[in-house]
């Protein structure tokens, strides 16, 4: 069978020690049995390693930082599209998703660039600050949580929580407080960095298990592969992990993706307690950096996402291999300064 030739643009080429998912997504697409893919890399920085991986990335362009806004981003993508005829674009950073979701119709109808992203409502309702409501709506347990806007509210927490509890920032950071005094400390520390509100979350102990999954936006979970981290870097990122055969976890994932009609790739982070209960801690609205493990297990999620974006029919995967491992490694590429010059001065490579 002749493979279908398409061009896919991918962000997140920062394959560093806390990697973006771009390169794993590209590897998955390059191994597609269905598509022959030309890859356009979209980068924010001039030293994103993916820029220099010419066997994976065919051509690269710098794009404006998300803070520059959708108008500037659109202008840049229009310029790129004029030269490249991109069929599908896969953004991979949390911070850029809002803009791409906002632009998705315009990209599709004016530039012919298709995406397959969650709706703005879906994107918003799985935010940390409202995850508890998300859990109730989609029938998955989420540690009980509450938003605080004032440090004095910590006094009243004893009515609803028992210590220890987790003090979380709106975007990042989480600390476990054993006493109200510690909670007050963390409140100040985290709010100084990420602002208000502060999220107070019930502390749930157990093993962390993660799932990479993809939903078709109509209530079907196309694929899901659970993984447990085996080796963690000092930044808390998985350096090695193993696919799990956990039917209950697959069932929960199907339910979350199904009920929320999730559209696109995602990563679900759970805690499995000693009693065998699963609590959803976070839902990331894009593929994780370890998404290539799904390919290794027999489910090519990025390929499915491209098919969905192209409005081709996609059947849900029925199984995957358990006990497959990924072991990450880093690699020193040798690069001529001319290449760095090109991306630095022209914004293209």
């Amino acid at each position: 069978m002749d493979k279908k030739k398409i061009t896919v643009a991918v962000t997140g080429l920062n394959n560093i020690d806390s990697p973006g998912p771009g390169i794993p997504v590209i590897r998955a697409l390059k191994e597609s049995r269905y598509f022959e893919v030309r890859i356009i890399g979209l980068s924010y920085e001039t030293l994103e390693p993916g820029l220099y991986m010419h066997d994976l990335v065919d051509k690269s362009y710098q794009i404006p930082m998300p803070s520059a806004g959708t108008a500037t981003l659109y202008e840049r993508l229009a310029y790129i599209q004029d030269k490249e005829h991109i069929d599908v674009l896969i953004p991979n950073f949390d911070a850029e998703l809002y803009n791409f979701i906002k632009l998705s119709d315009k990209l599709k109808y004016e530039l012919g660039i298709k995406t397959f992203l969650p709706t703005l409502e879906q994107f918003e309702e799985r935010h940390k600050s409202v995850l508890y409501e998300f859990g109730e709506k989609n029938e998955v347990k989420v540690p009980f949580s509450k938003m605080l806007f004032n440090v004095t509210e910590i006094n009243d927490l004893k009515n609803e929580f028992t210590y220890p509890l987790v003090v979380k920032g709106k975007y990042y950071d989480a600390s476990i407080a054993a006493t109200p005094e510690q909670a007050v400390n963390y409140f100040y520390k985290i709010s100084a960095k990420w602002g208000l509100p502060i999220i107070i979350q019930e502390f749930v102990s157990g093993n962390e298990v993660n799932v990479t999954a993809i939903g078709d936006g109509k209530g079907s979970c196309i694929g899901a592969v659970p993984m447990r981290k085996l080796y963690i870097t000092d930044k808390g990122k998985a350096w090695a992990g193993i696919s799990l055969g956990d039917e209950q976890l697959i069932e929960i994932t199907n339910r979350v993706i199904g009920n929320s009609k999730w559209k696109g790739g995602c990563e679900l982070e759970f805690i499995k307690t000693k009693e065998g209960e699963y609590y959803l801690l976070e839902m990331n609205p894009r593929f994780p950096a370890w998404v290539y493990l799904s390919v290794g297990c027999g489910q090519n999620h990025p390929e499915s996402l491209v098919k969905l974006a192209l409005e081709e029919s996609v059947e849900p995967f029925q199984n995957y291999q358990t006990g497959k491992m990924f072991v990450r490694y880093s690699y020193d590429q040798i690069v001529d300064i001319e290449e760095f010059e090109k991306i630095s001065t022209q914004g293209e490579l």
């Binding site: 001039t46 362009y61 710098q62 404006p64 840049r76 630095s344 001065t345 914004g347 293209e348």
Partner: peptide, 16 residues
């Protein structure tokens, strides 16, 4: 100086 701090919009080819 290149690659110190944050990048400007796209390389040096910023259009205002």
């Amino acid at each position: 100086k290149l690659n110190t701090g944050t990048m400007n919009k796209f390389g040096t080819r910023t259009e205002y």
